[in-house]
Design a protein around this nucleic acid. Structure first.
Length: 480
RNA sequence: CGGGGUGUAGCGCAGUUGGAAGCGCGCUGCGUUUGGGACGCAGAGGUCGGCGGUUCAAGUCCGCCCACCCCGACCA
């Protein structure tokens, strides 16, 4: 790197974002436009996300399976809104084995259609329901403009697909998953999110209702960080997913789908990062603690390294993810900066002085400089390290929450509304009319993010944009 | 797809009027260093994005193409 320093967030946020990802070795650009390579450090982060979500999906009765990458083109024509929504961004395979295919194959942009087809074969009776399946997969959408993690042509995600006997059950499932995402975001990723309902124009192509969790990034733009859709009977009718109920009557299933993608990594980066680089939440960080040994000659090295290794063993025994940076061609100062760039939540420095005293120096990533440093005893290292990581985890959430709430406004007139959109989000009454929403977007470049599940009790108001009566409040913001 | 920008060593860039391809960082080796981004010495590394044209001579001038980045329209 020619320039050691990262661009400042306040000067060029998107440049900061692009550079921090590459320098921290989360990801790199691939030779194909709009595609990225997720490097080992980035993939390790994704694996930690997977691990936690998988646990939650299984705890709520879901099983993993794998459906094919290729989907017959004709499948997409069966659901009207779905084809309209997705056809502009389909990647289509027309040739295989040197000859033109009879029917083109779509590289899956999402799997409702194939899974619907399979469900129609598997489901006969009410006794077969519910079907609760998730798959971890890559999908492809031909995007015009791409950005690392946030929007790439190929991305990784999990997509859950469920089938139920009643509308109520399907809605319950949709909200249950929304709650899983909310809890995961808040507690594991330390990303404050607002769960809510998508407007009609923002909902998934083919859904009856879409819900999302919305997060505020460091530049105050909104990011949809996960979605959960109630598909009603739309796909069941298109793919004839039917069952015989307890009265021996044929019924269409009620289905749902829900997904959270590698985009979430973008949310983590932009929620917690600072001018020094990434800050990863301890519960997801691939490396939670980096130990930097300090020595100036072989004699000191011989005393320090065993202490550093012993400390690592100690911490690892407590299930902490620890790395000893034993590279001897780099000075400590360089390593400090590098691990800060890579977002490791806690650093431990151990040198000859510490070996003597039985202490170590610790440095919190979330509190830069001297203020975040603290001397700790080598004894009971695991206990205080676990503690300190938890403290950092909560501090990150609290800081992000404070930032977000400081940038949410409740405008009551047009002037306040426009001001709010320039410095964050507007939380305001809205008439829920699509034409009104389009106008807002044309005039302000902001869109409705979600109608939060939590609404003021029994109140009503007038639409912030058009003044018509409004039943519910909505978040409006510029978004990624 | 529209607007803007950039393609020269791994990265960041300079390259004048057309006349011997350079600088910084990184990389390799050796030595000295090491508690907040070390230093010295010696090295390696190039299809100047591609194709064509003008010219005695092209990184430089002309034409076409390609790629990537940024900003807009579409999207997880």
């Amino acid at each position: 790197m020619a320039d050691m320093k990262l661009p400042k967030q306040s000067e060029n946020y998107s440049e900061w974002y692009t550079q921090v990802i590459q320098r921290a070795e989360l990801a790199d650009y691939a030779p194909v436009r709009g595609c990225m390579v997720i490097r080992p450090y980035g993939w390790a982060l994704w694996e930690n996300i997977q691990k936690d979500l998988n646990k939650r999906f299984k705890a709520t009765g879901h099983e993993n399976a794998q459906f094919p990458l290729f989907i017959p083109m004709s499948f997409f024509e069966k659901e009207k809104e779905h084809v309209e929504g997705f056809s502009p961004e389909l990647a289509v395979v027309t040739h295989g084995g040197g000859t033109e295919l009879e029917e083109p194959l779509v590289v899956r942009p999402t799997s409702e259609t194939v899974i619907g087809y399979m469900y129609s074969k598997w489901i006969q009776s009410w006794r077969d329901l519910p079907v609760l399946i998730n798959q971890w997969a890559n999908v492809v959408r031909w995007e015009m403009r791409t950005r690392l993690f946030l929007r790439t042509m190929e991305f990784f995600w999990q997509e859950g697909h469920t089938a139920h006997a009643t509308a109520e059950e399907a809605e319950e499932e949709t909200l249950k998953i929304l709650d899983v995402y909310t809890t995961f975001a808040r507690e594991i990723a330390a990303v404050p999110v607002i769960p809510g309902l998508k407007s009609n124009s923002e909902k998934f192509a083919g859904a009856v209702r879409s819900y999302s969790i919305e997060a505020m990034m460091g530049d105050t733009k909104a990011l949809q960080a996960g979605t959960s859709h109630n598909l009603g009977q739309n796909f069941a009718k298109a793919f004839e997913i039917q069952f015989v109920d307890q009265n021996n009557e044929m019924q269409h299933c009620w289905t749902t789908s829900w997904g959270l993608s590698t985009r979430f990594i973008g949310a983590i980066i932009m929620t917690h990062g600072d001018d020094q680089g990434l800050i990863l939440p301890p519960r997801l960080a691939p490396v939670q603690i980096v130990i930097v040994p300090i020595f100036k000659d072989d004699e000191e090295k011989a005393r320090v390294m065993p202490a550093a290794d012993a400390l690592r063993d100690n911490l690892e025994a407590a299930d902490l993810r620890v790395k000893v940076d034993d590279r001897d061609n780099l000075r400590p100062g360089f390593k400090f900066n590098e691990w800060e760039l890579r977002g490791v939540p806690l650093r431990i420095e151990i040198g000859p002085r510490d070996v003597e005293s039985g202490n170590v120096m610790t440095a919190r990533r979330d509190i830069p400089g001297r203020d975040g440093k603290q001397v700790m005893p080598q004894a009971n290292a695991a206990a205080w390290a676990v503690d300190l990581l938890e403290t950092i985890q909560h501090a990150l959430y609290q800081r992000a929450l404070n930032f977000r709430d400081a940038h949410i406004y409740q405008p009551t007139n047009r002037e306040e509304f426009l001001k709010a959109l320039d410095d964050g989000w507007a939380y305001a009454w809205w008439c829920e009319d699509t034409a009104c929403e389009t106008e807002i977007k044309e005039q302000t470049k902001a869109t409705t993010r979600c109608i939060p599940l939590d609404q003021p009790d029994g109140e009503t108001g007038t639409c912030i944009h058009c003044g018509k009566p409004a039943r519910r409040k909505v978040y409006i913001a510029r978004a990624y």
